[in-house]
Amino acid sequence: MNQLFARILVIDDEPQIHRFLGPALDAAGYHHLRADNGAQGLREIATWSPDVVILDLGLPDMDGKDVLVKARTFYDGPILILSARDKEGEKIEAFERGANDYVEKPFGIGELLARIKAALRQRAAAQPVQSKIVFGDIEVDLDLRYVVRGGEQVKLPPKEYALLTRLIAGHGKVLTHKELLVAVWGVAHIEDTQYLRVAVGQLRQKLEQDASEPQHIITEPGIGYRLRR
């Protein structure tokens, strides 16, 4: 897993936490999404498939431990608890319900970032390494950074290659316009959807049998794109 492109979902009802964490996660090279309550957080876990979830226990609509239990019915990624509750019993119960780590508020951003990195490393170590990706007549070698279609090498500029590998990393999930723009062009270009449309069109011209009827780089209208293998 490329940690630079990792997606971090922060479920917390405190605006100051998001104001503090958002810029820090951006600066560390992550793409983050905000949820202000448990129900929204569960929806985002299901649809966005984050690489790490940061979860507060004191949410306005439900206890964070209940969010944890519900999330574990469909999500197996790292969940880090971020909470002002410091009693040992709370921590034990959170771990028993499926938490991977527990950070007490107030916290240092350096410590939290280190724990996120550790969670990402552990997740990557648990997943089989697949360096060659094949879909249709296209082969992508992630180690050697080359793309072949029909036995012929396809030369992709850095942005197009980065976009393709980000779509591959989505494992068929829909990736939003915002997410792809941040991952490939950076936060300064979060509104530059034309960049994304042009790059997608160029990829389709080079990789699809018929760019007007793409079979692999699929548009989800109003939302983003996904890769169909």
Score class of each variant (00 low, 15 high):
residue 3 Q to Y: 13
residue 4 L to A: 14
residue 6 A to I: 04
residue 7 R to D: 14
residue 11 I to W: 02
residue 13 D to Q: 07
residue 14 E to C: 15
residue 14 E to T: 14
residue 17 I to D: 02
residue 20 F to H: 10
residue 23 P to N: 03
residue 29 G to P: 03
residue 31 H to R: 14
residue 33 L to Y: 02
residue 38 G to F: 06
residue 38 G to A: 03
residue 43 R to Q: 14
residue 49 S to N: 15
residue 50 P to F: 11
residue 54 I to T: 02
residue 61 D to A: 01
residue 63 D to W: 03
residue 63 D to L: 01
residue 64 G to E: 01
residue 69 V to D: 04
residue 70 K to M: 07
residue 70 K to Y: 03
residue 71 A to F: 00
residue 74 F to W: 04
residue 75 Y to W: 07
residue 77 G to D: 00
residue 77 G to H: 02
residue 79 I to T: 01
residue 80 L to R: 07
residue 81 I to S: 00
residue 83 S to R: 04
residue 84 A to W: 10
residue 84 A to S: 09
residue 87 K to Y: 04
residue 88 E to F: 10
residue 89 G to R: 11
residue 92 I to E: 02
residue 96 E to G: 04
residue 96 E to T: 06
residue 97 R to Q: 06
residue 100 N to E: 02
residue 100 N to T: 04
residue 103 V to R: 03
residue 107 F to T: 12
residue 107 F to H: 10
residue 109 I to M: 12
residue 110 G to P: 08
residue 111 E to C: 09
residue 116 I to K: 08
residue 122 Q to T: 11
residue 123 R to F: 13
residue 126 A to V: 09
residue 129 V to S: 08
residue 131 S to Q: 14
residue 134 V to M: 11
residue 134 V to N: 13
residue 136 G to S: 06
residue 142 L to G: 04
residue 143 D to V: 08
residue 146 Y to S: 10
residue 151 G to I: 06
residue 152 E to K: 13
residue 153 Q to W: 09
residue 157 P to F: 07
residue 157 P to C: 06
residue 161 Y to K: 09
residue 165 T to Y: 01
residue 165 T to G: 05
residue 165 T to N: 04
residue 166 R to I: 00
residue 168 I to R: 02
residue 169 A to Q: 11
residue 169 A to N: 08
residue 172 G to W: 09
residue 173 K to L: 13
residue 176 T to I: 00
residue 177 H to R: 15
residue 182 V to S: 03
residue 183 A to G: 07
residue 185 W to G: 05
residue 187 V to R: 05
residue 189 H to K: 13
residue 190 I to S: 01
residue 192 D to Q: 08
residue 196 L to R: 06
residue 198 V to Y: 10
residue 201 G to L: 03
residue 205 Q to I: 06
residue 206 K to D: 03
residue 209 Q to R: 10
residue 215 Q to G: 15
residue 217 I to V: 10
residue 218 I to N: 12
residue 219 T to F: 07
residue 219 T to E: 13
residue 219 T to Y: 05
residue 226 R to H: 12
residue 227 L to T: 14
residue 227 L to K: 12
residue 228 R to E: 11
residue 229 R to G: 13
residue 229 R to C: 08
